[in-house]
Design a protein around this nucleic acid. Structure first.
Lengths: 203, 203
DNA sequence: CCTCGACATTGCGCCAGCGCAAACTTCCAC
DNA sequence: GTGGAAGTTTGCGCTGGCGCAATGTCGAGG
């Protein structure tokens, strides 16, 4: 519940080509909250009430099928906005957002989105780019699911995570949050068993 | 290459909450072209040079994998914009657009996108909604590909087409363009054979 | 009317990946 | 430590869907 310094966020894509003053004005409408690991931020189907910016930590977005199977739609990386269903014309959240780690997020009430966009048009343009690149990623995934088998899908999923949240260490690259076989299965559309077998062949 | 009457397009989502004058100004920057069936409008990988609005007909967007397999990303319905890679921060088209039918499209040079958005901020907001709903659809498809088997994927793919381009007739619903088994296969990530078998069990 | 080419169907063998059960490994909590 | 819960690995049988080849259907052009 503390104020946010614009120097912390002004460099993010969301604020690109906005003046510092505008950026500060936008930040005046928000506050930061801490989200403990495994806490659900919003649930699929819930009425949209807020949108968010991830300052620190990691968030997982999942969708549940009517049959009760869970699919991981994406991991939100630091600096990204999420929960922007309102901007896309939705009235309920299309997925569930859960903190994978202890995280810190900025919260805005969705009610002010329209006003913010009217006051700072660059905001819509920047959000458009973000959503656009997510669309790209989703299409890539559709293509992968259509044409590749599990082994390659797992490989690509891991590469995507590394590019997004990888950290170089002496031994190689490390993803800085917990990732179970179950998670990989839910990202790739495979079973835990197959994922386990696949990974074991790579040592 | 003829002028376009604003009354034809003013009701489209793209122009929502824009004044007629603005709408007309935007239309003054475009011209319509006829695209014969099977003509490629732009190719995946090509530098973005234009964005489009489909007035009449049907367009198919496909992606080719490095291995040469083709996947149908989506069908563009009448009234939709497409080829808006520029707005999403891309420099090359992420997919190939081909006319499925003889079609009529409006063309704008991408160079004016930035200016249009600056002059008419609602344009960015409206585009954001469009892209948002495509993102939704893409995620739905990822979930389907992850959890359902071919039969249900085919069913959903057809339902999506019907909702989008269906026309009611005495005998039922009709999709108003040619659709081969190969097409359905490329939409669902199955083979022509399996699609054929699946459809035959439904009579 | 016949031919040719494109598309669709069908039979058959095969295998990637699933489902399940059982064993093994970690990591807490007490 | 010790017991238990959660996560992982592995063996095994089964099957959905693929690959291919052969055959069937339909429409357009000579």
């Amino acid at each position: 519940m503390s104020a946010v310094d614009s120097s912390m966020v002004a460099h993010l894509p969301l604020f690109e080509s906005l003046y510092t003053a505008a950026c500060e004005a936008i930040l005046r409408e928000t506050h930061s909250i801490r989200v403990p690991k495994n806490k659900v931020i919003f649930e699929q189907g819930e009425d949209v009430h807020s949108f968010y910016l991830l300052l620190h930590g990691h968030i997982r977005a999942t969708k549940m099928t009517p049959a009760g199977e869970q699919v991981i739609v994406r991991y939100v990386a630091t600096g990204e906005i999420f929960g922007i269903g309102q901007a896309m014309g939705l009235t309920t959240y299309p997925a569930t957002a859960t903190a994978v780690d202890d995280s810190v997020v900025l919260v805005w009430p969705t009610t002010i989105w329209t006003r913010l966009v009217a006051d700072y048009p660059a905001l819509a343009a920047n959000t458009l780019k973000t959503v656009g690149s997510r669309l790209q990623e989703a299409h890539t995934r559709v293509v992968e699911m259509s044409t590749q088998q599990v082994e390659q899908r797992v490989a690509h999923a891991l590469l995507r995570l590394i590019n997004q949240s990888g950290r170089k260490t002496a031994q190689g690259v490390e993803i800085d949050f917990q990732l179970s076989r179950q998670d990989i299965a839910e990202m790739t559309g495979a079973t835990v068993f197959t994922v386990s077998r696949t990974l074991s062949t790579w040592e």
